[in-house]
Simulated scan of single mutants.
Amino acid sequence: MKQLELYFIRHGETLFNTMDKLQGWSDSPLTPNGIRVAQQTGEWLANTSFQSVYSSDMKRTIDTANYIIAKNNSFNGAPKQSASFREAFFGGFEGLDNHDVWHTIATPYGASNQTQMLEHVSPGVVRDRMHAADPLHLAETGHQFWQRVDAGLANLLVNEPDHARILIVAHGTLIRSLTIRFGNSSFDPVHQFPANGSVTKLLLSENQTSILDYNLTTKK
């Protein structure tokens, strides 16, 4: 049975991150600090051998992947871009204030923010609630989100060799959602959002998916 070790890395800090704006399928550039964090992650993983490197098709993840690859001592190719590993699509809420949007979505359910909702329901349900609240009804539903991400994981199992170690530069909500879905009580992704440049390790096979580590950073 084929088994893959995936290193999911959240992209470096972006301009929208510093403004606390929702940034799903919209994009903003890495800040100087975001570049520094990506380079630090690359230095941290310099001696880790990767058979393949993927990123979402957003510029912030492609740039982060290239900064990491530049520091790696064994991989010197280009990242493979996959829309499957994009961030969740926030629809009509893209670019708006993160706190204000989640307060608006959560209030009808007796909560104040996304974290309080995730204490009681799955990431897929939260996606459905955002879709329902979106005036444009463009935000991804839970089914749409997981169908896309699962297709990306399935593609890896088909196209990558057994026991390959693969680096994937992706996004915070996607990584958090994977950890809630496949993790155990050793991790607390509901209350701890993955940091920019952090590493989350996932073991993927046809019959089982498990989280090995979550939100590892170079900070001591």
Rank of each mutant, 00 (worst) to 15 (best):
T209L: 09
G34D: 02
S177T: 00
P194S: 05
H171P: 03
T173G: 14
E43V: 06
K201V: 14
L45S: 10
R86T: 08
G197E: 01
T104C: 01
P108V: 07
I211Y: 02
W102S: 09
A88H: 13
V121W: 06
I62Y: 12
S52F: 12
G197A: 08
N72A: 06
W102P: 00
L136P: 01
L15P: 04
P32V: 06
N17K: 08
T104I: 12
E43L: 11
N155T: 14
P189L: 00
A151G: 10
S52L: 11
E140G: 05
H163S: 09
L203P: 00
T217W: 03
V101T: 09
A133Q: 07
Q147K: 08
H171C: 07
A195R: 08
V37W: 03
Q114M: 12
L216K: 13
N215T: 00
H191W: 00
N155D: 15
P161W: 00
L136H: 13
R176I: 02
L15Y: 05
V158K: 08
Y7H: 11
K59Y: 09
M130H: 01
N113P: 07
L216C: 12
Y214R: 00
Y109I: 13
L167G: 06
Q39G: 03
S82L: 14
A139V: 02
D213K: 12
P32M: 01
